[in-house]
Design a protein around this nucleic acid. Structure first.
Lengths: 232, 232
DNA sequence: TTGCCTTGTCATGGATCTGTCATACACCAT
DNA sequence: ATGGTGTATGACAGATCCATGACAAGGCAA
């Protein structure tokens, strides 16, 4: 199974590295950010499975970061554990609930951290762990990276697979080319927006023989949408 | 997620740039204006999510700007934070009387500014997060950029969609052609006012087959109105 | 290395959209 | 009725956006 990816947002480098070490040791993939800006950048680059946010950050407070992440639709369901300084302040934090899914009061042991991380991952599992997604005649097997239409296998290139996977996980919603670049290609990558068109074309072509190309719909002036609801 | 857009109206350049720097760092998009005139122009060009107005400005006072913004229907719901110099309580009161949603007394820390900005944005959020709007038989799915009437999909061009979207978000209210150009087309675009008529016509035509064209109503001498209440 | 697959970019062509005009129509006051 | 003002409608040419095929660079395995 793919190792879980965890983003640590913490300005104090020793603490951050200690946490990272413990998590890596436990088999997680870890990415570090020292402030909210770096966190944003990391998020744009790759979507983690869980985020650890220090309550106190140099730029925006971790509380604000958490709030804004919970406010935005794209990041709303990312599990967040907030790291608070002392018990004294944890009351305050409790009062200023920013929407974090769990809290951890410093100092904490690596064991405790791991326990919370695993617990939260377990609790929020099943959302993106979906092993198979189906829409219309299409079936996407995430575990096997396979796509089939009405039982027959559909050959897809890597990019087309990821594109279709994203679409099938977020159906009936229009995504701009910019959004698709962020979510499918991973932000911080400069790719011409028109390139999306080409991959859409390739995806459609692949689905053509199965009468499913109509699921990939163009919304002029807005972007593209995947929908098994085929309308005029 | 689109970064929030903030307009700063402040004549003292160092202060203005300092504020802008802090906000940009926090991930906001920032536009600067040195007086009310520039602010008006910026507003016409792009509608910000929040405005910071200095109390003291060279031309019109910031207070006047705030008052007039709060007086006009188009800008009434734009959240405004007023920046006052170290001042007496009377100033604060006056600022609030002008309709500012919050005020901040100089000198203030970047942290405090950010806290206020985020708080106000949070408070006023939820307006444009509406994902679906329904009026009468019409249903507009903003996420999917789809419109349906009594279940049947309605094909619309980009401009007609935006027009209908605006109307459905602001129903039962008359909008002049000028207002529609500002809000739907986005100001600072020179388009003949009569062009509105044509798009209204196109929108009506699209809704015709669904018996919903009557929702788009002409108010002679004033403009147009959307209403599911069909009056004689 | 060669050969195959994948990927990003470009140029072209086609489809749709958009703003404007000219004309016809509706409403209102005189 | 009559003119004046404001709106509806159809047509149109330019602008915009998207689909598509071709192509070169890079990766990877044989």
């Amino acid at each position: 199974m793919t190792p879980k990816h965890i983003l640590i947002v913490e300005d104090e480098r020793p603490i951050r590295e200690m946490i990272a070490f413990g998590l890596k040791r436990a088999g997680f993939e870890v990415r570090e950010a020292e402030d909210s800006r770096a966190a944003r950048s990391a998020l744009a680059d790759r979507r983690p499975d869980l985020i650890l946010v220090d309550w106190m950050l140099p730029d925006t407070s971790g509380l604000e970061l958490t709030r804004s992440l919970k406010r935005e639709r794209d990041t709303r369901d990312l599990p967040i554990i907030m790291l608070t300084a002392r018990a004294a302040e944890s009351d305050k934090v409790a009062g200023l609930d920013g929407g974090a899914d769990d809290y951890l009061t410093k100092p904490f042991s690596p064991r405790e951290l791991l326990a919370r991380v695993n617990a939260l991952l377990r609790r929020t599992a099943g959302q993106d762990e979906t092993e198979a997604v189906g829409h219309g005649a299409l079936l996407l097997d995430r575990a096997g990276h396979r796509v089939s239409a009405a039982g027959r296998p559909v050959p897809l290139g890597p990019t087309e697979y990821r594109l279709l996977e994203f679409f099938m996980l977020h159906p009936d919603r229009v995504y701009s080319r910019e959004q698709l670049l962020d979510r499918v290609w991973g932000g911080n990558v400069y790719v011409e927006e028109r390139t999306i068109d080409v991959h859409i074309r390739r995806l459609r072509k692949a689905l053509e023989g199965y009468d499913c190309d109509q699921y990939v719909q163009t919304v002029r002036g807005a972007g593209y949408r995947f929908s098994a609801r085929v309308e005029a």
